[in-house]
Design a binder for these strands. Structure first.
Length: 97
DNA sequence: GCTCTGACGATTT
DNA sequence: GAAATCGCCAGAG
């Protein structure tokens, strides 16, 4: 299992209507501050269907970036019931806090 | 094996 | 609150 595989596994475990920070995914992997590496793996986005990469946001609550387009990412999140305020997501939606 | 680069994080000013 | 700085790990050249 490569690093990317682990990332996809964690991200695919995120329930509908909830989101997780890059740092949160990193912690779930067993490491702590490798948020960049997590986002990097998602950036290659090998399987955008299996892995809801749009449910992964920054620790600040902002959606961060998206290979498909930030606007698209926000739209998907809103479509799942996520409430975005001023481009930021309430921590209530974030898992692991 | 070294050196960038990157969907980031936390601290400090 | 916003901008700048340093640190972080993984992949590509």
């Amino acid at each position: 299992m490569t690093f990317d595989e682990k990332v996809y596994e964690i991200v695919s475990k995120i329930p509908n209507g909830k989101v997780m920070t890059y740092g949160g995914v990193a912690e779930a992997l067993g490491n702590n501050g490798l948020a960049r590496a997590v986002g990097n793996s998602l950036n290659r986005n090998p399987n955008p269907i299996k892995v809801p990469c749009h449910r992964v946001i920054k620790s600040d609550g902002r959606v961060g970036e998206y290979a498909n387009g930030v606007e698209k990412k926000i739209r998907l999140l809103k479509g799942e019931g996520i409430v975005i305020k001023n481009g930021r997501i309430p921590k209530e939606h974030i898992i692991g806090m």
